[in-house]
Design a protein around this nucleic acid. Structure first.
Lengths: 212, 212
DNA sequence: TGCGTTTTGTACCGTTCCGCATATTATTGA
DNA sequence: TCAATAATATGCGGAACGGTACAAAACGCA
């Protein structure tokens, strides 16, 4: 009878890096200098591993980047679901989400970096269909998140029955894009917080009024 | 007495390229593959000149890119001033501007490319202060354009006296950012035209209602 | 015709790029 | 103790990178 190894230790030499942590480090390296601007040496240094291990663990540069991008969206959607609490007033929920995003865009003790997707995938999206599709899928899911949040507010009577959920979600999404762009462009977090607050308020008010 | 050369022909061998046209070609090359992703060979080929001439005429890669970026904003602001006609109703003026931008983002017979600034400068903005500042300045001027357009609408009574020009301009700006991002992400022009139209309408309606 | 001037074309520099071949090390199982 | 396994570490190789030196070419001027 074959003794199962219990999968705790696969067999040979154990890897000296934590895959999740290494992927996080790679993400941060790409976040700073973009896809084309980040070399495998940069990545290997940031991830604390040498290139052959990097290859064995994550594939080539493009595969590594796609893993980082998909992981980023996965986490972003999760954070979105947490911020957009169903029971909250719409303006508050939107503002909370924007604040959560700004927390990501302005890391502590480091330079502002905006949204990972918009800051890095957008450049590659024209010529690389896989990156383009992965990026578009993230945008789509974020838009869907806004949509369901606004739709819930409408259903519970916070918004007018004529409220155009699609348009309101488009605006909410656009505000988030704008935060992503402007934070990376060097604008102050304070000014963007102000913009986020007044926009969230405006979108909610607009939905409550009849006609939009 | 020194005979002036009339400046028609400077002196030595005439250059075989048109600087303005070459800069346009360089812009298009960067637009496709980004700053880091476009090599000097790519640029020289696109501009129809060899590298030493490129160097003599435009400086190094970074200087060339900054020239392209500044030229892009200059033209963009000019197009904005033309689209945002003072006498037009606000919703119409905004929609016209968005249409004009989409014309740039979806070139005929070529792949969608979005906004040059957002698509290429954003990636470099974190680590390169000159690119960051040039990019931010463009955003600032676009925002100012929206602001003065909306302020005019308010002054002539189209909007409420309580209309918050700053917030409305922020939203108008955000919609443009969103068009820039989503067009480059592969979304159809048709869907973005729809989004632009309903957003322009919403912003104008919002400004006309009291309270925002 | 020849000189000064400016641009062009070729070819090259040292560096960095990505990807891998090979050897070494650490661990499991017999 | 030793083979099998799977990871690490070193370092190479050809291509591409940004940038430039140098000579040939095309022009104005005298």
């Amino acid at each position: 009878m074959v003794q199962k190894n219990s999968a705790l230790r696969p067999r040979g030499r154990p890897r000296s890096y934590d895959p999740e942590r290494a992927l996080q480090r790679a993400t941060e390296a790409f976040w700073k200098t973009g896809y084309a601007g980040t070399s495998l040496d940069d990545l290997a240094a940031a991830m604390g591993m040498n290139r052959p291990s990097l290859y064995a663990g994550f594939g080539d540069k493009r595969a590594l980047y796609l893993k980082a991008l998909n992981r980023y969206w996965e986490r972003g959607i999760k954070a979105m679901d947490e911020a957009l609490r169903p029971e909250m007033p719409l303006a508050e929920a939107l503002y909370q989400l924007y604040q959560s995003a700004l927390g990501l865009y302005y890391p502590e003790k480091r330079r502002a970096r905006g949204c990972f997707g918009i800051g890095t995938a957008l450049t590659e999206a024209v010529e690389d269909p896989l990156i383009r599709d992965a990026f578009a899928e993230g945008l789509r899911r974020i838009h869907a998140g806004f949509e369901s949040c606004i739709d819930r507010a409408k259903r519970r009577g916070e918004l007018s029955e004529n409220a155009n959920v699609e348009t309101l979600a488009g605006l909410a999404s656009a505000v988030l894009s704008s935060l992503a762009v402007r934070s990376r462009a060097g604008m102050s977090r304070q000014s963007l917080e102000k913009f986020a607050e007044s926009s969230a308020q405006a979108i909610a008010t607009m939905g409550a009024a009849t006609g939009i």
